[in-house]
Protein backbone atom coordinates (compact mmCIF):
# COMPACT_ATOMS: atom_id res chain seq x y z
CA UNK A 1 0.00 0.00 0.00
CA UNK A 2 1.23 3.45 -0.83
CA UNK A 3 1.60 5.97 1.94
CA UNK A 4 -1.24 8.45 1.84
CA UNK A 5 0.92 11.38 2.62
CA UNK A 6 4.44 11.85 1.38
CA UNK A 7 5.19 13.84 4.53
CA UNK A 8 5.05 10.62 6.43
CA UNK A 9 7.92 9.11 4.52
CA UNK A 10 10.99 8.59 6.68
CA UNK A 11 13.70 11.14 6.05
CA UNK A 12 17.42 10.62 6.28
CA UNK A 13 18.96 12.03 9.42
CA UNK A 14 20.80 15.31 9.06
CA UNK A 15 21.34 18.56 10.86
CA UNK A 16 19.05 20.74 8.79
CA UNK A 17 16.25 18.24 8.27
CA UNK A 18 12.90 19.49 9.50
CA UNK A 19 11.79 17.74 12.68
CA UNK A 20 8.49 19.61 12.75
CA UNK A 21 6.60 20.68 9.65
CA UNK A 22 3.56 22.88 10.09
CA UNK A 23 1.51 23.27 6.90
CA UNK A 24 -1.44 25.57 6.32
CA UNK A 25 -2.38 25.58 9.98
CA UNK A 26 -5.36 27.68 11.00
CA UNK A 27 -7.29 27.94 14.21
CA UNK A 28 -10.58 29.66 14.77
CA UNK A 29 -11.92 29.37 18.31
CA UNK A 30 -15.59 28.79 19.02
CA UNK A 31 -15.88 32.50 19.89
CA UNK A 32 -15.00 33.27 16.26
CA UNK A 33 -11.56 34.56 17.14
CA UNK A 34 -9.04 33.56 14.51
CA UNK A 35 -5.86 32.80 16.45
CA UNK A 36 -3.87 31.38 13.54
CA UNK A 37 -4.13 32.31 9.88
CA UNK A 38 -2.53 29.74 7.62
CA UNK A 39 0.76 29.16 9.38
CA UNK A 40 3.59 27.38 7.58
CA UNK A 41 6.70 26.67 9.58
CA UNK A 42 9.60 24.27 9.64
CA UNK A 43 11.66 23.57 12.72
CA UNK A 44 15.02 22.01 12.01
CA UNK A 45 16.39 19.07 13.87
CA UNK A 46 18.68 20.00 16.74
CA UNK A 47 18.16 23.75 16.65
CA UNK A 48 16.98 26.25 19.21
CA UNK A 49 14.09 28.11 17.63
CA UNK A 50 12.71 31.20 19.28
CA UNK A 51 9.16 32.26 18.55
CA UNK A 52 8.66 35.92 19.27
CA UNK A 53 5.45 37.82 19.28
CA UNK A 54 3.33 40.17 21.35
CA UNK A 55 0.59 38.93 23.66
CA UNK A 56 -2.24 37.30 21.75
CA UNK A 57 -0.16 36.79 18.62
CA UNK A 58 -0.88 33.06 18.56
CA UNK A 59 2.31 31.67 20.08
CA UNK A 60 0.61 29.54 22.70
CA UNK A 61 -2.13 28.43 20.30
CA UNK A 62 0.50 27.22 17.84
CA UNK A 63 2.37 25.30 20.54
CA UNK A 64 -0.85 23.92 21.99
CA UNK A 65 -1.90 22.53 18.63
CA UNK A 66 1.45 20.85 18.03
CA UNK A 67 1.33 19.32 21.51
CA UNK A 68 -2.26 18.08 21.17
CA UNK A 69 -3.96 20.38 23.66
CA UNK A 70 -5.94 22.34 21.08
CA UNK A 71 -7.56 20.97 17.94
CA UNK A 72 -6.49 22.65 14.69
CA UNK A 73 -9.24 24.03 12.43
CA UNK A 74 -7.39 23.16 9.23
CA UNK A 75 -3.87 22.20 8.26
CA UNK A 76 -1.42 19.54 9.35
CA UNK A 77 1.53 19.16 11.66
CA UNK A 78 4.13 16.44 11.25
CA UNK A 79 6.49 15.84 14.15
CA UNK A 80 9.46 13.55 13.64
CA UNK A 81 7.76 12.00 10.63
CA UNK A 82 4.41 11.40 12.38
CA UNK A 83 1.18 13.26 11.79
CA UNK A 84 0.23 14.63 15.20
CA UNK A 85 -3.40 13.56 14.87
CA UNK A 86 -3.50 10.34 12.87
CA UNK A 87 -0.30 9.08 14.41
CA UNK A 88 -0.48 10.82 17.77
CA UNK A 89 1.25 8.21 19.90
CA UNK A 90 4.73 8.21 18.33
CA UNK A 91 4.50 11.96 17.70
CA UNK A 92 3.61 12.87 21.29
CA UNK A 93 6.13 10.43 22.77
CA UNK A 94 8.85 12.59 21.23
CA UNK A 95 7.49 15.90 22.50
CA UNK A 96 7.87 17.51 25.91
CA UNK A 97 6.01 20.67 26.90
CA UNK A 98 6.68 23.23 29.61
CA UNK A 99 3.56 25.40 29.59
CA UNK A 100 3.46 29.04 30.46
CA UNK A 101 1.32 28.74 33.57
CA UNK A 102 2.67 27.13 36.70
CA UNK A 103 0.06 24.40 36.78
CA UNK A 104 1.06 21.74 39.26
CA UNK A 105 -0.60 19.28 41.58
CA UNK A 106 -0.09 21.18 44.81
CA UNK A 107 -0.41 18.18 47.11
CA UNK A 108 1.89 15.84 45.22
CA UNK A 109 5.57 15.40 46.03
CA UNK A 110 8.17 16.32 43.42
CA UNK A 111 9.18 12.71 43.03
CA UNK A 112 5.57 11.52 42.63
CA UNK A 113 4.80 14.09 39.99
CA UNK A 114 7.81 13.31 37.77
CA UNK A 115 7.14 9.59 38.15
CA UNK A 116 3.55 10.25 37.08
CA UNK A 117 4.67 12.23 34.03
CA UNK A 118 7.04 9.54 32.86
CA UNK A 119 4.40 6.85 33.21
CA UNK A 120 1.75 8.96 31.50
CA UNK A 121 3.98 9.21 28.44
CA UNK A 122 4.20 5.43 28.30
CA UNK A 123 7.75 4.97 29.53
CA UNK A 124 8.75 2.18 31.93
CA UNK A 125 10.02 3.37 35.32
CA UNK A 126 13.63 4.57 35.41
CA UNK A 127 14.44 6.04 38.83
CA UNK A 128 18.10 6.59 37.91
CA UNK A 129 17.14 8.83 34.98
CA UNK A 130 14.63 10.80 37.06
CA UNK A 131 17.24 11.21 39.77
CA UNK A 132 19.63 12.68 37.20
CA UNK A 133 17.02 15.17 35.97
CA UNK A 134 16.16 16.29 39.48
CA UNK A 135 19.84 16.68 40.32
CA UNK A 136 20.49 18.66 37.14
CA UNK A 137 17.65 20.99 38.06
CA UNK A 138 18.76 21.27 41.71
CA UNK A 139 15.53 19.61 42.83
CA UNK A 140 16.94 16.43 44.28
CA UNK A 141 16.96 17.76 47.85
CA UNK A 142 13.29 18.66 47.44
CA UNK A 143 12.15 15.37 45.96
CA UNK A 144 9.91 14.51 48.93
CA UNK A 145 8.52 18.01 49.39
CA UNK A 146 4.98 18.79 48.38
CA UNK A 147 4.93 21.05 45.35
CA UNK A 148 2.83 23.65 47.16
CA UNK A 149 5.71 24.28 49.58
CA UNK A 150 8.13 25.21 46.79
CA UNK A 151 9.00 28.71 45.57
CA UNK A 152 7.89 29.93 42.14
CA UNK A 153 11.30 29.30 40.64
CA UNK A 154 11.37 25.78 42.05
CA UNK A 155 7.90 25.09 40.66
CA UNK A 156 9.11 26.22 37.26
CA UNK A 157 11.93 23.68 37.53
CA UNK A 158 9.43 21.00 38.50
CA UNK A 159 7.51 21.79 35.30
CA UNK A 160 10.72 21.36 33.31
CA UNK A 161 11.54 18.10 35.11
CA UNK A 162 8.07 16.79 34.26
CA UNK A 163 8.51 17.72 30.61
CA UNK A 164 11.89 15.97 30.46
CA UNK A 165 10.82 12.88 32.39
CA UNK A 166 9.97 10.88 29.28
CA UNK A 167 13.18 11.73 27.43
CA UNK A 168 11.66 13.86 24.65
CA UNK A 169 13.69 14.81 21.59
CA UNK A 170 11.58 17.92 20.97
CA UNK A 171 11.05 20.33 23.83
CA UNK A 172 8.61 23.25 23.87
CA UNK A 173 9.26 25.97 26.40
CA UNK A 174 6.38 28.44 26.53
CA UNK A 175 7.79 31.56 28.18
CA UNK A 176 10.16 29.52 30.34
CA UNK A 177 11.68 32.43 32.22
CA UNK A 178 8.60 34.54 32.88
CA UNK A 179 8.76 35.59 36.50
CA UNK A 180 12.09 33.93 37.09
CA UNK A 181 15.05 35.68 38.73
CA UNK A 182 18.25 36.45 36.86
CA UNK A 183 20.24 33.62 38.36
CA UNK A 184 17.68 30.97 37.58
CA UNK A 185 17.29 32.38 34.09
CA UNK A 186 21.03 31.90 33.52
CA UNK A 187 20.75 28.34 34.89
CA UNK A 188 17.94 27.61 32.48
CA UNK A 189 19.84 28.92 29.52
CA UNK A 190 22.70 26.63 30.52
CA UNK A 191 20.32 23.72 30.79
CA UNK A 192 18.74 24.44 27.40
CA UNK A 193 22.16 24.57 25.77
CA UNK A 194 23.05 21.29 27.46
CA UNK A 195 19.89 19.69 26.07
CA UNK A 196 20.68 20.94 22.59
CA UNK A 197 24.14 19.40 22.82
CA UNK A 198 22.40 16.10 23.53
CA UNK A 199 20.45 16.47 20.30
CA UNK A 200 17.18 17.84 21.68
CA UNK A 201 15.38 20.31 19.42
CA UNK A 202 14.10 23.27 21.42
CA UNK A 203 11.32 25.65 20.55
CA UNK A 204 10.86 28.51 22.97
CA UNK A 205 8.53 31.43 23.08
CA UNK A 206 9.56 34.44 24.99
CA UNK A 207 8.86 38.04 25.79
CA UNK A 208 12.49 38.59 26.67
CA UNK A 209 14.14 39.43 23.40
CA UNK A 210 17.42 39.19 25.25
CA UNK A 211 16.66 35.53 25.69
CA UNK A 212 16.08 34.89 22.00
CA UNK A 213 19.17 36.89 21.16
CA UNK A 214 21.23 34.93 23.64
CA UNK A 215 19.92 31.46 22.87
CA UNK A 216 18.32 31.04 19.50
CA UNK A 217 19.77 29.74 16.25
CA UNK A 218 16.76 30.93 14.30
CA UNK A 219 13.99 33.32 15.11
CA UNK A 220 10.41 33.36 13.99
CA UNK A 221 8.22 36.37 14.53
CA UNK A 222 4.49 35.83 14.83
CA UNK A 223 1.94 38.61 14.91
CA UNK A 224 -1.85 38.44 14.71
CA UNK A 225 -1.80 34.76 13.87
CA UNK A 226 0.66 35.05 11.01
CA UNK A 227 4.32 34.18 10.80
CA UNK A 228 5.84 37.50 9.81
CA UNK A 229 9.32 36.18 9.24
CA UNK A 230 11.63 33.28 9.97
CA UNK A 231 15.32 33.96 9.78
CA UNK A 232 18.67 32.89 11.07
CA UNK A 233 19.35 35.12 14.05
CA UNK A 234 22.60 36.60 12.72
CA UNK A 235 21.16 37.16 9.27
CA UNK A 236 18.13 38.80 10.78
CA UNK A 237 20.19 41.16 12.85
CA UNK A 238 22.42 42.00 9.92
CA UNK A 239 19.57 42.47 7.55
CA UNK A 240 17.57 44.71 9.75
CA UNK A 241 20.28 45.98 12.02
CA UNK A 242 21.09 49.63 12.26
CA UNK A 243 24.27 50.86 13.84
CA UNK A 244 24.63 53.96 15.89
CA UNK A 245 27.72 56.02 16.43
CA UNK A 246 27.76 58.04 19.62
CA UNK A 247 30.22 60.87 19.98
CA UNK A 248 30.91 62.25 23.45
CA UNK A 249 31.70 65.90 22.88
CA UNK A 250 34.56 67.80 24.48
CA UNK A 251 32.28 70.76 25.21
CA UNK A 252 28.47 70.85 25.08
CA UNK A 253 26.72 72.31 22.02
CA UNK A 254 23.60 74.43 22.29
CA UNK A 255 22.46 73.48 18.79
CA UNK A 256 23.71 71.75 15.66
CA UNK A 257 25.20 73.92 12.95
CA UNK A 258 22.63 74.31 10.17
CA UNK A 259 24.61 72.53 7.49
CA UNK A 260 25.11 69.46 9.72
CA UNK A 261 21.44 69.04 10.38
CA UNK A 262 19.97 65.81 9.02
CA UNK A 263 17.57 63.09 10.07
CA UNK A 264 20.45 60.78 10.86
CA UNK A 265 22.20 63.05 13.29
CA UNK A 266 20.80 63.96 16.66
CA UNK A 267 22.07 66.05 19.51
CA UNK A 268 21.27 64.82 23.03
CA UNK A 269 19.19 67.16 25.17
CA UNK A 270 22.11 68.17 27.37
CA UNK A 271 24.19 68.87 24.28
CA UNK A 272 27.07 66.59 25.26
CA UNK A 273 26.43 63.73 22.82
CA UNK A 274 25.93 63.42 19.10
CA UNK A 275 24.18 60.27 17.88
CA UNK A 276 24.59 59.26 14.24
CA UNK A 277 22.48 56.41 12.88
CA UNK A 278 23.62 54.51 9.80
CA UNK A 279 22.85 51.38 7.89
CA UNK A 280 25.45 48.62 7.97
CA UNK A 281 24.22 47.31 4.62
CA UNK A 282 24.82 50.45 2.59
CA UNK A 283 28.07 51.02 0.74
CA UNK A 284 28.58 54.50 2.07
CA UNK A 285 28.07 54.85 5.80
CA UNK A 286 28.95 58.52 5.76
CA UNK A 287 31.07 58.30 8.89
CA UNK A 288 34.21 59.67 7.29
CA UNK A 289 32.34 62.66 5.87
CA UNK A 290 30.66 63.35 9.18
CA UNK A 291 33.91 63.36 11.08
CA UNK A 292 35.51 65.65 8.50
CA UNK A 293 32.67 68.14 8.71
CA UNK A 294 32.71 68.08 12.51
CA UNK A 295 36.38 68.91 12.32
CA UNK A 296 35.67 71.80 9.96
CA UNK A 297 33.20 73.21 12.49
CA UNK A 298 35.69 72.80 15.28
CA UNK A 299 33.57 70.27 17.15
CA UNK A 300 35.91 68.07 19.18
CA UNK A 301 34.98 64.81 20.83
CA UNK A 302 36.71 62.94 23.62
CA UNK A 303 35.26 59.48 23.03
CA UNK A 304 33.16 57.54 20.57
CA UNK A 305 31.30 54.24 20.51
CA UNK A 306 29.18 52.29 18.08
CA UNK A 307 26.27 50.04 18.96
CA UNK A 308 24.17 47.65 16.95
CA UNK A 309 20.41 47.79 17.33
CA UNK A 310 19.12 44.92 19.43
CA UNK A 311 16.65 42.31 18.41
CA UNK A 312 14.12 44.05 20.59
CA UNK A 313 14.24 47.16 18.46
CA UNK A 314 14.05 45.07 15.32
CA UNK A 315 11.11 43.22 16.73
CA UNK A 316 9.23 46.31 17.81
CA UNK A 317 9.70 47.92 14.41
CA UNK A 318 8.53 44.75 12.67
CA UNK A 319 5.40 44.35 14.72
CA UNK A 320 4.59 48.06 14.52
CA UNK A 321 5.10 48.02 10.78
CA UNK A 322 2.50 45.30 10.42
CA UNK A 323 0.02 46.68 12.87
Amino acid sequence: MKPLDSLEMPRPAGASDPIITVSGLTKTYASGFQALKKVDLEIRKGEIFALLGPNGAGKTTLISIICGIVNPSTGTVVADGHDIIRDFRPARTKIGLVPQELTTDAFESVWATVTFSRGLFGKPPNPAYLEKILKDLSLWEKRDSKIMTLSGGMKRRVMIAKALSHEPTILFLDEPTAGVDVELRRDMWEMVRGLRENGVTIILTTHYIEEAEEMADRIGVINKGEIVLVEDKHVLMQKLGKKQLTLHLQSPLSSLPAELQSANLQLSSDGTELVYTFDTQSQETGIAGLLRRLNEHGIDFKDLQTSESSLEEIFVSLVRGRA
Binding site: C67, I69, L97, G122
Partner: peptide
Protein backbone atom coordinates in the same frame (compact mmCIF):
# COMPACT_ATOMS: atom_id res chain seq x y z
CA UNK B 1 -9.73 23.47 37.26
CA UNK B 2 -5.99 23.71 38.06
CA UNK B 3 -4.89 23.34 34.43
CA UNK B 4 -2.80 20.21 34.96
CA UNK B 5 -4.99 18.47 32.39
CA UNK B 6 -2.61 19.87 29.75
CA UNK B 7 -0.30 16.99 30.55
CA UNK B 8 -2.91 14.29 29.97
CA UNK B 9 -4.00 15.97 26.73
CA UNK B 10 -0.42 16.19 25.46
CA UNK B 11 0.47 12.62 26.43
CA UNK B 12 0.44 9.68 24.01
CA UNK B 13 -2.63 8.26 25.71
Amino acid sequence: FTGTIYEVLSAPI
